[in-house]
Design a binder for these strands. Structure first.
Lengths: 207, 207
DNA sequence: CCTTTCCGATACAACTATGTATTGAAACAA
DNA sequence: TTGTTTCAATACATAGTTGTATCGGAAAGG
């Protein structure tokens, strides 16, 4: 597979603009830089980003990087925006089972994308609002609404009482993982199952 | 009140060593620097700390700072270790009420000490292990064990079933707050009350 | 009075990061 | 072929940070 653009399909996940003259960009450089940027973000946070170190570690040069993003912030935003939302688990119609699937999915995502540390970055007070917004829009909001949907389906099916406190209970799902990470507790293997059942019961269900 | 040591009591919260010759240290400088360091930590994280900026903002100089802490890391550790654990709420013997009090206390602590951002810092992967350890030992562990104690007292009193999943449920307490912070949701005024009741019910109680 | 330590101010060398620029070669369009 | 853009490598000025050092003066103990 060529690392260079072909005339159909996409380059770097983006629709191809009308072909322009000159040597095409190597899209492997894009991905390598964005990946490295995410690693550095997770390790050192925003202020710890070093353009030079990223370009170097990505096997490229600062010039190739500056050609794509004007500054550190744009790079960070791009790195987060590029985080592909992996395909969410399918909805079976059985809310509790879906909830468990959702937590299992969350667990998988959070470990290999190092997005846990990214969440930590977002708690820093000097983080750029636009950066935070992209993160929330791309990564936090979709999952949150799926979790809420599970619980509301439970209500609709009569499995949960109508006055269940979904707004608070839904924060328990990811919150449990954050709390363990902060405390240094290693989540148990059956974390998804136990947490889902607890949340379900918190809402008044008999799981 | 003098900012200089007297011959009894404490300096800067530390027992006085056998009086040594020379001009005594100004302990207001200690507190100003530690306070400023915490603010900077919350804002920029560890890699964003600037000794010069901290000394400056604290109204002192780098020399006064270097005289006290050899490097950036020691300063950060000291700043966290200095975070006074405010007196925890009194135990009434009524577990659910105590749990609510604990959450209310947590809420108060987390807002004015900017310790929420500190939690975010701890999620960074390059954070020094000793730094993380001090944070957990000082701030995370005490609260966590108090929350667990509330729930276990509930079990002992027969208000909660003996097989309640306290280990997971206890992570919901602070986790809920973290999740809201990451999501950008402003916790409601009755957050402590609602969360405590949900956790209680998750454990099988009829709150 | 003498010694010690602290304080504020200033200075300095070493290092790192940033942003821009240039050069020669490579890859492509027209 | 010509023109355009990219790429790797290198260079450079600017700025910020770090750690150490020095200096005069202030505040204490002996």
């Amino acid at each position: 597979m060529s690392r260079i653009s072909d005339t159909s399909g996409k380059i770097c996940g983006v629709p191809i603009p009308p072909a322009r003259a000159g040597r095409p960009r190597d899209c492997e450089i894009d991905t390598a830089i964005l990946e490295t940027t995410r690693r550095h973000l997770a390790a050192h946070g925003v202020s710890g980003l070093s353009i030079a170190a990223i370009a170097d570690e990505a096997g490229s040069t600062r010039q190739a990087l500056y050609r794509r993003w004007p500054d550190k912030l744009s790079l960070a935003v791009a790195a987060v925006a590029d985080l592909a939302e992996t395909t969410p688990p399918v909805v079976t119609g059985e809310p509790l089972r879906d909830l468990i699937a959702e937590l299992t999915h969350f667990r998988e995502c959070i470990v290999d994308a190092s997005s846990l540390a990214l969440a930590g970055v977002m708690l820093q007070e000097d983080v750029d609002p636009e950066f935070r917004r992209v993160y929330r829009e791309r990564l936090v909001k979709p999952r949150r609404s799926r979790v809420v949907a599970c619980l509301e389906r439970g209500i609709a099916l009569g499995l949960l009482p109508g006055d269940a406190d979904v707004a608070i209970a839904s924060t328990f799902v990811t919150g449990s993982w954050y709390a363990m990470a902060v405390a240094g507790t290693k989540p148990p293997k059956d974390w998804a199952d136990r947490t889902a059942h607890l949340v379900w019961r918190a809402c008044g269900g008999k799981g």
